[in-house]
Design a protein around this nucleic acid. Sequence first.
DNA 1: ATTAAAATGGAAATCGATTTCCAATATACT
DNA 2: AGTATATTGGAAATCGATTTCCATTTTAAT
Lengths: 349, 349
Amino acid sequence: MNVQRSKEKRITIHDIAREIGIAPSSVSKALNNLPTISDRIKVLVRAKAKELNYVHNSGAANLRKGTSQLVGVVVPRINAAFFSDVIAGIEEKCFEYNHRLIICQSDETFVREVQAVETLIQQNVDCILISLSKETKTNLHLKEIVDRNIELIQFDRVDESFKSHIIVNDNEKVALKAVKHLLSQGYKQIAYFGGAEHIPAYKERKKGYLAALKSAGINIPYQHVVDDVSQKERAYITAIELLKGNNPPDAFFTVSDHAALGILSAIKELGLKTPEDVGIVGFANETFTEATCPTLTSIDQQSRKMGLMASDIFFKKFREKEKQPSLRKQETLVIKSTVVIRASSSRKK
Amino acid sequence: MNVQRSKEKRITIHDIAREIGIAPSSVSKALNNLPTISDRIKVLVRAKAKELNYVHNSGAANLRKGTSQLVGVVVPRINAAFFSDVIAGIEEKCFEYNHRLIICQSDETFVREVQAVETLIQQNVDCILISLSKETKTNLHLKEIVDRNIELIQFDRVDESFKSHIIVNDNEKVALKAVKHLLSQGYKQIAYFGGAEHIPAYKERKKGYLAALKSAGINIPYQHVVDDVSQKERAYITAIELLKGNNPPDAFFTVSDHAALGILSAIKELGLKTPEDVGIVGFANETFTEATCPTLTSIDQQSRKMGLMASDIFFKKFREKEKQPSLRKQETLVIKSTVVIRASSSRKK
DNA sequence: ATTAAAATGGAAATCGATTTCCAATATACT
DNA sequence: AGTATATTGGAAATCGATTTCCATTTTAAT
């Protein structure tokens, strides 16, 4: 579909120029406050611009300058709590630096992710912040981005094999800490409910989990380590199975609060109690974690902060480039996440 | 800040034209699949475009065509569950119609809302979807939008006095229904916890609440009808006060689930029980409503659907305009919301 | 007063794609 | 064959702002 807005006529610098009898170029300079224009003219121009209700056309300027002041974001789901918080952070920072934000969602599919990237390139964005979809296993589209000299910043769900700025949580470390916390509460048979296996964030969390058990000298039956059960429903079903089995876990560490919710239902369903019989630790510190019964221990990923810092990489780089255009090192930032201990894992008073 | 991307050189239609020895205009026509170009050339052009890794520059096309295929959204908070769901709906529809989405948040302040609108005008968006901030009491910035022939669609938090497309929930009706539900459960002293008074959505909900009480012939002490307590903290404090007073309510109808959360804490704090002693109905059907203890009765606003329908107004209009450019009637759509009955308000089995 | 230097405003090219004419060629029709 | 009619591709203008010179004017300096 291709649509023509019935546009009367947009006021341009030419209109301003004509009205006060100067050249359009002078108007541009005046509006941009260049030193080569006298204050007298600047005042005139600004007044007339206001009078005519002039609005700068960023698209036109963009074309000429080769810069759009546009930042693109691609996430699996706009309305997942974690991502919407990150986006809020990004937006805040962009606003501070007078940049605009274009947001696309991949819907967890690879095709739409690629399309989103293409779209952002078409829009001539200056920077792309991306968190990969579940399906994404190749990175030609990322290469496409850097090939066109667009800054690329991957966050949370990243492809580590692809060189770019990367910003993630200290997933392994915090997972280790969380599981140690469970151990300290006397839980011994701690099961793991993970996400899609190839996603680094989940791999890391699993590593941390395994490390904690190892350091405690605990052996876990293989059935207790399950991948791809981050959805509530699947977690519920799997938890029921395990708890009914002949070697039931006495605690769950999971990579998502939604999974934790499913586990909680399963526990209640079987007439067990949390935290007395079975402990739970979730991940993401969703709003609902402090509203559940019992309240849920979870991991605060500092999502807003991640958004702030991710975009800050880009803006900082701008400042650097102004001084030193050759600067191009890739940063990898790790955001410290914390275990928020609530009732679901506290059985020692 | 003003930044220059170190751009090697973007491949343009001129490059394609030069390589195969035809005119740039022909390349444009070929890529746009105009009938005035032979298939032979079209094939050549497409092949060469792929070979050179050409990407269309929407900004340039936008400038020439006067259309950006861009849709702007302004919301108080990107990461509030309701808004992020609406945005997800909008994004889905935009994707379907091959439009891009620019998102701004007003942070509930009027200044930033005005800036956001200005920004979107600068970007030459074809349509603006807006939900007003708490502070917004004037509408010059909305006038600004329609004056520039940009489609304006207000949703949820709207200024009814300003003529535009409007899409809202059936707030009054559903509030009435919710309060009647409370009455049916035997609650009599039902308090109201509202939001900022001048926002129509809240006004409507209050109207529905009052209507339900009136139709039941119930008189409510004025202290039980409180505005501007949609935040969790404030709701908590106010609920404690009321419950400790000498005419305590036996139920709360509130315009926000967060307020409901605060009320729930207050009730627990005072050693009372929900739903036995005090009933609660929230609003928005946030994720956590089914995780609380007891689960929270709430109102499902169908936020995603609101997003879909809101943007659809715009796209439908496009189709109409193509046939009949004079068409310009303003639609007001009402989305039916439903009461989701859960434990917090069910004391009759 | 004369020359040099600094300040100020303008003309024109430019960014990349679209679109309006127009010219040239091809096809159809007496 | 000769005229009329389609087809097809190109030249040039255009969208709105920026930017690079360049020309003039003003100020400073001797």
